[in-house]
């Protein structure tokens, strides 16, 4: 029964410090002009931070296989919402008349 996985404190502290460093980087990079890359870096760092929290603080790395599947399913459905909605807005200008919505 007591086969619960106890994550060592060291790992928690390491994750916390990494999150702090990533936060510092994301703020610093925001003031540097990287063109379109600014958004990529910003979101990349946010995804990395979220992944760390999910894997270690939320114990997904140590749980049953079902839990990562459930979590991934949630994000996948989010992508369906984003992707299909954007498919409308992105293709509105294709007829050449411009996007009426963009004014």
């Amino acid at each position: 029964m007591s086969d619960i996985h106890v994550v060592p404190v060291k790992i928690y502290v390491a994750v916390f410090l990494t999150l702090m460093v990533l936060t510092a980087i994301t703020v610093a990079v925001a003031f540097v002009d990287l063109g379109a890359l600014n958004n990529v870096v910003m979101l990349g760092i946010a995804v990395a931070k979220a992944t760390l929290v999910v894997l270690f603080f939320m114990h997904v790395k140590y749980g049953t296989r079902l839990v990562p599947l459930v979590a991934a399913g949630g994000f996948f459905w989010l992508l369906i919402l984003f992707g299909f909605t954007l498919s409308d807005y992105l293709s509105r200008g294709w007829l050449g008349a411009g996007t009426p919505w963009m004014r």
């Binding site: 994301t26 925001a30 003031f31």
Partner: peptide, 10 residues
């Protein structure tokens, strides 16, 4: 935080 506070800062 990045999406609201950090856009277009450069």
């Amino acid at each position: 935080f990045p999406l609201l506070y950090l856009i277009g800062r450069h």
